[in-house]
Structures are given as structure tokens and as C-alpha cells.
């Protein structure tokens, strides 16, 4: 077994990068959905996909990335990058759907205020973004928690390769398969502590920000 710290760091890096990536496209997407009625039906699509099984995402991505698959030439299978892409896709519906609600409320509150105070569309969008930021961060953190705690994608497209694509969840699965329950529980507790820690930190930041 690798040192636990390395596995934890690797997990955080992979899921953290996946989360940042997902946020990069999910939040603008949510803004688009919230500000235009034309795209509204897409919201139901994303809401419906929030609970998509991680194994399914992993499997579909595997079929895409496999050497004989359409994206096989990228040679991404069994790399951390493949997990990052998979987890980013996995949490996109979650971040989009939650951010959508936040931005929708934010728009109804702050867009009109900004406009009547003389703001251009761009300035209004900025104010909405500024005011909803703490809630948007919460939605991104929800996405991170799902990414860091998922197993299906990491196992199938990462391959649980020692020293390379082994994450906390795949380690737990392996330790369980090997009957090393103590190690599995230890890793599980670390994972839980991280999830709780992140959520606490976000609460603190939000309170500091005066938005609770």
C-alpha cells in the first residue's frame, strides 16, 4: 500500500481539478439557462441527470476512451486525466442544476435592482454573480464532495493503478477486496473527515461573508 497521504493528496488534486473544470462550464451554463426561457427545458434534463450512476458515466467514458473507441487516439484511458474528465462530467448536472436555482433567484432579486440603478446588462450580470457567489461556491463544493467520494469513474477509467491513478475510493475498494478492513475503514474516515471539513469551511466563509 502506498502512504495514505499521497493517496489523499492525489484524490484531492484529481477531484479538485475536476471540480474546477466542471465549475468553469457549469456556472456560465446555469446563467444561460436561468436568463433565457428558451433553454428552460434543458434544466429538467440536468436535474434528471443529477443522480446518474457513477458506474454508467465510467463505462460510457471507457467505451469512448478505449483504444478501439472513437477517442482512443487521445490515449487517456487509465490516466488521472481520464478520471478528471469523467468526474467533471459526472458533477456537471449537479453543479448546473443547483447553480441554476441560485442564479434564478439572484436574477429576480438583483438584476432588476442593478438595471434600475443604471447598470448595463454586463454590469447587472456582474452584480448577480457577486451576490450569488457564496451560494455558487456551495454548489461547487457539493460537486467536489460527489467527485471525491465517487468510485465508478475512478475505478473504470482510472484503473486503480498503484502510484498513478489510485484514489481514496479505489483504495477502499481494493482494501475491502483484499480483506484489509482496517485500512479500508481508515481511508473511509479520512474521506469523511475531508467532506465534513470542506463543508464546515464553506459554512464559515459564508458566515464571514454575511450571507447567512
Amino acid at each position: 500500500m502506498e502512504p495514505i497521504q499521497i493517496i489523499v493528496l492525489r484524490s484531492l488534486t484529481i477531484s479538485g481539478t475536476a471540480t474546477l473544470l466542471a465549475a468553469l462550464w457549469s456556472i456560465p451554463l446555469a446563467y444561460l439557462l436561468a436568463s433565457s426561457r428558451r433553454f428552460r427545458p434543458l434544466v429538467y434534463f440536468f436535474e434528471a441527470l443529477v443522480g446518474i450512476p457513477t458506474v454508467l458515466v465510467g463505462l460510457l467514458l471507457y467505451l469512448l476512451l478505449s483504444r478501439n473507441g472513437p477517442l482512443g487516439f487521445l490515449e487517456l484511458l487509465y490516466t488521472p486525466q481520464a478520471i478528471i474528465v469523467g468526474e467533471a462530467l459526472l458533477i456537471t448536472p449537479l453543479i448546473t442544476a443547483v447553480s441554476y436555482q441560485t442564479i434564478l433567484t439572484g436574477l429576480s432579486y438583483y438584476r432588476e435592482l442593478a438595471l434600475t440603478l443604471g447598470a448595463s446588462d454586463k454590469q447587472a450580470a456582474l452584480l448577480v454573480f457577486r451576490e450569488t457567489l457564496p451560494s455558487l461556491i456551495s454548489s461547487v463544493v457539493m460537486g467536489f464532495s460527489r467527485a471525491v467520494g465517487e468510485l465508478g469513474v475512478a475505478l473504470i477509467v482510472g484503473g486503480n493503478i498503484k502510484g498513478y491513478t489510485r484514489t481514496m475510493t479505489t483504495s477502499i475498494a481494493l482494501a475491502t477486496a483484499m480483506g484489509e478492513y482496517e485500512a479500508a475503514v481508515k481511508l473511509g474516515l479520512v474521506l469523511t473527515a475531508i467532506a465534513v471539513g470542506v463543508s464546515l469551511a464553506v459554512r464559515l466563509v459564508r458566515r464571514e461573508w454575511g450571507s447567512e
Binding site: T13, I14, G16, L20, P80
Partner: peptide, 9 residues
């Protein structure tokens, strides 16, 4: 993130 990316991944 970048640092751990370089070292770990």
C-alpha cells in the same frame, strides 16, 4: 493544484 498536478499526476 498545479504543484500537486505536476508531482502526483
Amino acid at each position: 493544484v498545479l504543484a500537486s498536478y505536476t508531482f502526483l499526476l
